[in-house]
Amino acid sequence: MSKEYVHPAPVRVWHWINAFAFVLLVITGVQIRFAELINFLSLEDAVRLHNWVGFIVIADYALWYIYYFSTGKIRLYYPNLRTFAADAIKQAKYYGCGIFKGEPNPHHMTADNKFNAMQQKAYVMLMFIFLPAQIITGIFLWQVKGFENYIDMLGGIRIVDTIHVLIFYFFAAFMIAHTYLATLGHTPLAHFKAMFTGYEDH
């Protein structure tokens, strides 16, 4: 079985910082929202940790952004508009049926073609819409008074809070699906190992 270097070091660093931070944000977010039900952290500590980790995610997003745009690798995220629909259907059929029969994955992962059509669609949404929206609403909620004018422009604190909470639930659900999908390599741990070593098995 051959190996290919698919995940460069900056991407792996970004990924694991992001993963660890997201777990912390979900835990502290749940504590903040449900203080009367859960008590594994004081609310004060939960808010403080949530804020600090939020800034780590912002810095980490900057790392991702600078790396992908400066190297031109951002094109990995751009779907091929001519083949996208057909590829996505093919990929969905594989996950829904072919994988159980032992059919090969229609997408062959290489350094230049890392994501399948479904991943491209999901990650473009995540990295260009959901995560920036979560960062912006998070910053506004961190200093409500300081960003009062911007909050009012968006329709008020309740709207900003609603966006932040809905995306929070979306990310919580995404992390479950993402972790499970990562077990669909040739062995359940193959993709996890690759995200540490950088090399994917072929």
Binding site: I32, A35, L43, Y169
Partner: peptide
């Protein structure tokens, strides 16, 4: 925070996570 939370959002959230 927490006190004035909109319950509908939690129902949507639980549906999302449970669905996942």
């Amino acid at each position: 925070l927490g006190t004035t939370r909109v319950r509908l959002l939690d129902k949507i959230g639980i549906a999302l996570i449970a669905g996942g």
